[in-house]
Simulated assay, not measured.
Amino acid sequence: MTSLAARQAALVAALTSGAPVPPGFDARLVEIARVALLRKRAGEVARQWPELATALGPRWPGAWAGWAATRPTRGSLRDGWDLARDLAGRGALPAAAAAELAAREAAMRYDGRSAPRTRRLPALRRVAGSVALQAGGRVRILRRP
């Protein structure tokens, strides 16, 4: 009673969420495709969050892959935001990336579940020693760590 849709869903889960490889698929080839998709996602997130990727430097691919391996994508902006918040929560967010996260937090509202929305009212956000102020649609970094 396995329909094509169910098999496709199982394959997508294996590729994006770390689910087990469904029967009938070559585990080695699925793993190669999964790693390639993680690399592609890492590049997309690095384009949205350049300071985060640069601050992590050679640790970026490993930090990204370790965080994203069991999380399906929610878009590169949200994926990077969630990773940056996770790193900040663990005290592992590099100082150079703190200003980028503070600026995003000041410019947009994001609750971790729904899509980010632009803020209309002034906002002040602090992240790991960085302070960002948004007023009139412009964001200024007041302090960098």
Rank of each mutant, 00 (worst) to 15 (best):
residue 2 T to A: 14
residue 3 S to A: 04
residue 4 L to H: 13
residue 5 A to T: 15
residue 5 A to R: 14
residue 9 A to W: 09
residue 13 A to K: 05
residue 17 S to G: 15
residue 17 S to H: 09
residue 18 G to D: 03
residue 20 P to Q: 11
residue 21 V to R: 01
residue 22 P to E: 13
residue 24 G to L: 05
residue 27 A to I: 06
residue 27 A to V: 06
residue 32 I to P: 00
residue 35 V to N: 11
residue 38 L to P: 04
residue 39 R to A: 15
residue 40 K to G: 12
residue 40 K to V: 15
residue 44 E to L: 02
residue 44 E to N: 01
residue 45 V to T: 00
residue 46 A to H: 07
residue 46 A to Y: 02
residue 48 Q to M: 09
residue 50 P to T: 00
residue 51 E to Q: 11
residue 53 A to D: 00
residue 54 T to M: 11
residue 55 A to N: 03
residue 59 R to W: 09
residue 62 G to H: 07
residue 62 G to N: 12
residue 64 W to P: 03
residue 67 W to E: 00
residue 67 W to V: 14
residue 68 A to K: 03
residue 68 A to C: 06
residue 76 S to K: 09
residue 77 L to S: 08
residue 78 R to H: 06
residue 78 R to I: 08
residue 78 R to S: 05
residue 82 D to L: 10
residue 84 A to V: 07
residue 87 L to C: 00
residue 88 A to Q: 10
residue 92 A to N: 09
residue 94 P to S: 12
residue 95 A to K: 06
residue 96 A to N: 02
residue 96 A to I: 04
residue 97 A to F: 03
residue 100 E to T: 07
residue 104 R to S: 11
residue 105 E to K: 02
residue 105 E to G: 02
residue 108 M to W: 12
residue 116 P to A: 07
residue 117 R to T: 05
residue 120 R to W: 11
residue 123 A to K: 02
residue 125 R to I: 08
residue 125 R to C: 15
residue 126 R to V: 15
residue 126 R to P: 06
residue 128 A to K: 09
residue 129 G to F: 13
residue 131 V to T: 15
residue 134 Q to W: 08
residue 134 Q to A: 08
residue 136 G to M: 12
residue 138 R to M: 15
residue 139 V to W: 12
residue 139 V to A: 13
residue 140 R to W: 11
residue 140 R to P: 06
residue 142 L to K: 06
residue 143 R to E: 13
residue 144 R to I: 03
residue 145 P to N: 09
